[in-house]
Protein backbone atom coordinates (compact mmCIF):
# COMPACT_ATOMS: atom_id res chain seq x y z
CA UNK A 1 0.00 0.00 0.00
CA UNK A 2 1.70 3.23 -1.11
CA UNK A 3 1.86 5.84 1.66
CA UNK A 4 2.76 9.33 0.51
CA UNK A 5 3.92 11.85 3.08
CA UNK A 6 3.21 15.31 1.75
CA UNK A 7 5.61 16.89 4.22
CA UNK A 8 8.42 15.26 2.23
CA UNK A 9 6.89 14.43 -1.19
CA UNK A 10 5.71 17.24 -3.49
CA UNK A 11 1.96 17.31 -4.07
CA UNK A 12 2.48 17.15 -7.80
CA UNK A 13 4.36 13.85 -7.44
CA UNK A 14 1.40 12.37 -5.56
CA UNK A 15 -1.13 13.49 -8.14
CA UNK A 16 1.06 12.35 -11.03
CA UNK A 17 1.44 8.89 -9.46
CA UNK A 18 -2.32 8.67 -9.11
CA UNK A 19 -2.84 9.80 -12.70
CA UNK A 20 -0.30 7.31 -13.99
CA UNK A 21 -2.08 4.28 -12.54
CA UNK A 22 -2.51 1.75 -15.33
CA UNK A 23 -5.66 -0.27 -15.72
CA UNK A 24 -5.53 -3.34 -13.47
CA UNK A 25 -2.79 -1.89 -11.28
CA UNK A 26 -2.39 -3.74 -8.00
CA UNK A 27 -1.74 -0.50 -6.12
CA UNK A 28 -5.35 0.03 -5.19
CA UNK A 29 -5.00 1.41 -1.66
CA UNK A 30 -3.22 4.69 -1.12
CA UNK A 31 -2.60 6.64 2.01
CA UNK A 32 -1.70 10.33 2.14
CA UNK A 33 -0.08 11.73 5.27
CA UNK A 34 0.36 15.32 6.46
CA UNK A 35 -1.87 17.06 3.88
CA UNK A 36 -1.77 20.15 6.17
CA UNK A 37 -4.49 21.99 4.28
CA UNK A 38 -2.79 21.74 0.88
CA UNK A 39 -4.87 22.49 -2.20
CA UNK A 40 -5.83 20.04 -4.95
CA UNK A 41 -4.92 16.85 -3.08
CA UNK A 42 -5.90 13.71 -5.04
CA UNK A 43 -7.53 15.55 -7.94
CA UNK A 44 -8.29 14.13 -11.35
CA UNK A 45 -7.98 10.45 -10.48
CA UNK A 46 -9.41 8.05 -13.07
CA UNK A 47 -8.86 4.60 -11.53
CA UNK A 48 -10.77 2.31 -9.15
CA UNK A 49 -8.48 2.95 -6.17
CA UNK A 50 -9.05 4.13 -2.63
CA UNK A 51 -7.14 7.08 -1.22
CA UNK A 52 -7.19 7.76 2.50
CA UNK A 53 -6.04 11.26 3.40
CA UNK A 54 -5.05 11.60 7.05
CA UNK A 55 -5.77 15.18 8.04
CA UNK A 56 -7.38 18.40 6.79
CA UNK A 57 -7.13 19.46 3.14
CA UNK A 58 -7.54 22.82 1.40
CA UNK A 59 -9.25 23.78 -1.86
CA UNK A 60 -10.58 21.33 -4.47
CA UNK A 61 -9.71 17.98 -2.87
CA UNK A 62 -10.95 15.07 -4.97
CA UNK A 63 -11.92 17.40 -7.80
CA UNK A 64 -12.86 15.84 -11.16
CA UNK A 65 -12.75 12.42 -9.53
CA UNK A 66 -13.58 9.35 -11.63
CA UNK A 67 -13.97 5.86 -10.15
CA UNK A 68 -11.81 6.42 -7.06
CA UNK A 69 -12.93 6.47 -3.44
CA UNK A 70 -11.25 9.40 -1.71
CA UNK A 71 -11.67 9.66 2.06
CA UNK A 72 -10.53 12.69 4.01
CA UNK A 73 -9.98 11.94 7.69
CA UNK A 74 -10.33 15.59 8.59
CA UNK A 75 -12.03 18.68 7.18
CA UNK A 76 -11.92 20.04 3.64
CA UNK A 77 -11.66 23.54 2.22
CA UNK A 78 -13.68 25.11 -0.59
CA UNK A 79 -14.72 23.15 -3.67
CA UNK A 80 -14.28 19.61 -2.42
CA UNK A 81 -15.14 17.03 -5.13
CA UNK A 82 -15.79 19.86 -7.57
CA UNK A 83 -16.94 18.50 -10.90
CA UNK A 84 -16.76 14.88 -9.75
CA UNK A 85 -17.66 12.46 -12.54
CA UNK A 86 -17.99 9.14 -10.68
CA UNK A 87 -16.67 7.31 -7.63
CA UNK A 88 -17.01 8.51 -4.08
CA UNK A 89 -15.57 11.26 -1.90
CA UNK A 90 -16.09 11.00 1.86
CA UNK A 91 -15.21 13.80 4.28
CA UNK A 92 -15.12 12.81 7.92
CA UNK A 93 -15.15 16.42 9.13
CA UNK A 94 -16.71 19.66 7.86
CA UNK A 95 -16.44 21.14 4.40
CA UNK A 96 -16.21 24.76 3.28
CA UNK A 97 -18.18 26.46 0.54
CA UNK A 98 -19.31 25.01 -2.81
CA UNK A 99 -18.82 21.35 -1.94
CA UNK A 100 -19.64 19.11 -4.90
CA UNK A 101 -20.09 22.10 -7.22
CA UNK A 102 -20.98 21.18 -10.82
CA UNK A 103 -20.56 17.46 -10.01
CA UNK A 104 -21.76 15.21 -12.82
CA UNK A 105 -21.81 11.86 -11.05
CA UNK A 106 -20.57 9.81 -8.13
CA UNK A 107 -21.31 10.39 -4.48
CA UNK A 108 -20.06 12.98 -2.01
CA UNK A 109 -20.63 12.18 1.66
CA UNK A 110 -19.95 14.88 4.26
CA UNK A 111 -20.07 13.56 7.79
CA UNK A 112 -19.92 17.01 9.37
CA UNK A 113 -21.43 20.28 8.14
CA UNK A 114 -21.16 21.94 4.76
CA UNK A 115 -20.85 25.73 4.42
CA UNK A 116 -22.55 27.90 1.80
CA UNK A 117 -23.31 26.96 -1.81
CA UNK A 118 -23.19 23.20 -1.27
CA UNK A 119 -24.07 21.47 -4.55
CA UNK A 120 -24.13 24.68 -6.56
CA UNK A 121 -24.90 23.89 -10.21
CA UNK A 122 -24.83 20.15 -9.51
CA UNK A 123 -25.37 18.10 -12.65
CA UNK A 124 -25.95 14.52 -11.55
CA UNK A 125 -23.87 14.06 -8.42
CA UNK A 126 -25.42 12.65 -5.24
CA UNK A 127 -24.48 14.64 -2.15
CA UNK A 128 -25.28 13.42 1.37
CA UNK A 129 -24.54 15.75 4.30
CA UNK A 130 -24.97 14.35 7.80
CA UNK A 131 -24.88 17.78 9.39
CA UNK A 132 -26.28 21.06 8.06
CA UNK A 133 -25.65 23.10 4.94
CA UNK A 134 -25.20 26.85 4.49
CA UNK A 135 -26.97 29.48 2.43
CA UNK A 136 -27.49 29.38 -1.34
CA UNK A 137 -27.04 25.62 -1.48
CA UNK A 138 -28.15 23.83 -4.66
CA UNK A 139 -28.20 27.18 -6.50
CA UNK A 140 -29.09 26.44 -10.15
CA UNK A 141 -28.88 22.73 -9.38
CA UNK A 142 -29.65 20.88 -12.58
CA UNK A 143 -29.90 17.22 -11.70
CA UNK A 144 -28.78 14.76 -9.04
CA UNK A 145 -29.75 14.45 -5.39
CA UNK A 146 -28.86 16.48 -2.31
CA UNK A 147 -29.69 14.86 1.02
CA UNK A 148 -29.29 16.83 4.25
CA UNK A 149 -29.83 15.24 7.64
CA UNK A 150 -29.59 18.56 9.46
CA UNK A 151 -30.79 22.04 8.48
CA UNK A 152 -30.44 24.13 5.34
CA UNK A 153 -29.57 27.83 5.29
CA UNK A 154 -31.17 30.69 3.39
CA UNK A 155 -32.26 30.52 -0.24
CA UNK A 156 -32.10 26.77 -0.67
CA UNK A 157 -32.41 25.72 -4.31
CA UNK A 158 -32.55 29.20 -5.80
CA UNK A 159 -33.20 29.02 -9.56
CA UNK A 160 -33.19 25.25 -9.37
CA UNK A 161 -33.76 23.03 -12.41
CA UNK A 162 -34.47 19.33 -11.88
CA UNK A 163 -32.24 18.31 -8.95
CA UNK A 164 -34.01 16.71 -5.97
CA UNK A 165 -33.39 18.12 -2.51
CA UNK A 166 -34.21 16.18 0.66
CA UNK A 167 -33.91 17.94 4.01
CA UNK A 168 -34.60 16.37 7.39
CA UNK A 169 -34.24 19.51 9.52
CA UNK A 170 -35.37 23.09 9.07
CA UNK A 171 -34.99 25.09 5.92
CA UNK A 172 -34.26 28.71 6.74
CA UNK A 173 -35.76 29.89 3.47
CA UNK A 174 -36.32 28.67 -0.07
CA UNK A 175 -34.76 30.44 -3.05
CA UNK A 176 -36.60 31.64 -6.13
CA UNK A 177 -38.66 28.94 -7.84
CA UNK A 178 -37.86 26.28 -5.22
CA UNK A 179 -40.86 24.68 -3.54
CA UNK A 180 -41.67 21.82 -1.22
CA UNK A 181 -42.95 18.83 -3.13
CA UNK A 182 -44.83 15.70 -2.36
CA UNK A 183 -42.74 12.75 -1.20
CA UNK A 184 -43.89 9.84 -3.34
CA UNK A 185 -42.92 6.19 -3.07
CA UNK A 186 -40.27 6.53 -5.74
CA UNK A 187 -38.61 9.28 -3.70
CA UNK A 188 -38.71 7.25 -0.51
CA UNK A 189 -37.04 4.38 -2.36
CA UNK A 190 -34.43 6.70 -3.81
CA UNK A 191 -33.70 8.14 -0.37
CA UNK A 192 -33.48 4.70 1.19
CA UNK A 193 -30.86 3.78 -1.38
CA UNK A 194 -28.90 7.02 -0.94
CA UNK A 195 -28.86 6.68 2.85
CA UNK A 196 -27.79 3.08 2.63
CA UNK A 197 -25.00 3.82 0.14
CA UNK A 198 -23.69 6.59 2.35
CA UNK A 199 -23.59 4.28 5.37
CA UNK A 200 -26.32 6.02 7.33
CA UNK A 201 -28.45 3.92 9.63
CA UNK A 202 -31.24 4.75 12.04
CA UNK A 203 -32.69 7.49 9.82
CA UNK A 204 -35.96 6.90 7.99
CA UNK A 205 -36.68 8.35 4.54
CA UNK A 206 -40.06 9.46 5.85
CA UNK A 207 -38.31 11.94 8.16
CA UNK A 208 -37.30 14.08 5.18
CA UNK A 209 -39.14 16.67 3.13
CA UNK A 210 -38.56 16.99 -0.58
CA UNK A 211 -37.89 20.25 -2.42
CA UNK A 212 -37.56 20.94 -6.10
CA UNK A 213 -38.33 23.30 -8.92
CA UNK A 214 -41.71 24.98 -9.35
CA UNK A 215 -40.69 25.11 -13.03
CA UNK A 216 -41.84 28.68 -13.42
CA UNK A 217 -38.48 30.32 -13.78
CA UNK A 218 -37.08 28.28 -16.64
CA UNK A 219 -38.67 26.78 -19.72
CA UNK A 220 -39.52 23.34 -18.49
CA UNK A 221 -40.81 21.10 -21.24
CA UNK A 222 -42.28 17.78 -20.19
CA UNK A 223 -40.87 16.19 -23.36
CA UNK A 224 -37.38 16.75 -21.94
CA UNK A 225 -38.12 15.15 -18.55
CA UNK A 226 -36.08 12.07 -19.42
CA UNK A 227 -32.98 14.20 -19.86
CA UNK A 228 -32.76 14.77 -16.11
Amino acid sequence: MPAIDLSTTPLRALNQSLHALAEGSSETEWEVLNPDGRHAVAVGIDAPVSVDIRGPVGYYCGGMNKQATVTVHGSAGPGVAENMMSGKVVIKGDVSQYAGATGRGGMLVVEGNAASRCGISMKGIDIVVKGSIGHMSAFMAQTGNLVVLGDAGDALGDSIYEARLFVRGNVQSLGADCVQKEMRDEHLELLEDLLQRSGITGVKPSEFRRYGSARKLYNFNIDNADAY
Binding site: G37, A115, S116
Partner: peptide, 25 residues
Protein backbone atom coordinates in the same frame (compact mmCIF):
# COMPACT_ATOMS: atom_id res chain seq x y z
CA UNK B 1 -22.62 36.32 1.13
CA UNK B 2 -19.39 35.09 2.71
CA UNK B 3 -17.48 34.17 -0.41
CA UNK B 4 -14.15 35.26 1.08
CA UNK B 5 -12.64 32.34 2.94
CA UNK B 6 -12.15 32.18 6.70
CA UNK B 7 -11.21 29.58 9.26
CA UNK B 8 -11.16 30.04 13.03
CA UNK B 9 -9.48 27.86 15.62
CA UNK B 10 -9.71 28.04 19.37
CA UNK B 11 -7.92 26.27 22.21
CA UNK B 12 -7.44 27.12 25.88
CA UNK B 13 -4.29 28.95 24.79
CA UNK B 14 -5.40 31.07 21.83
CA UNK B 15 -7.90 32.09 19.18
CA UNK B 16 -6.46 31.95 15.67
CA UNK B 17 -7.74 33.13 12.32
CA UNK B 18 -6.56 32.06 8.87
CA UNK B 19 -7.89 32.63 5.36
CA UNK B 20 -7.19 28.93 5.02
CA UNK B 21 -6.42 26.04 7.30
CA UNK B 22 -2.85 26.08 5.97
CA UNK B 23 -2.22 29.19 8.06
CA UNK B 24 -3.07 27.32 11.25
CA UNK B 25 -1.09 24.13 10.68
Amino acid sequence: IACKPAVLAETDDYVAFGSEYRALV
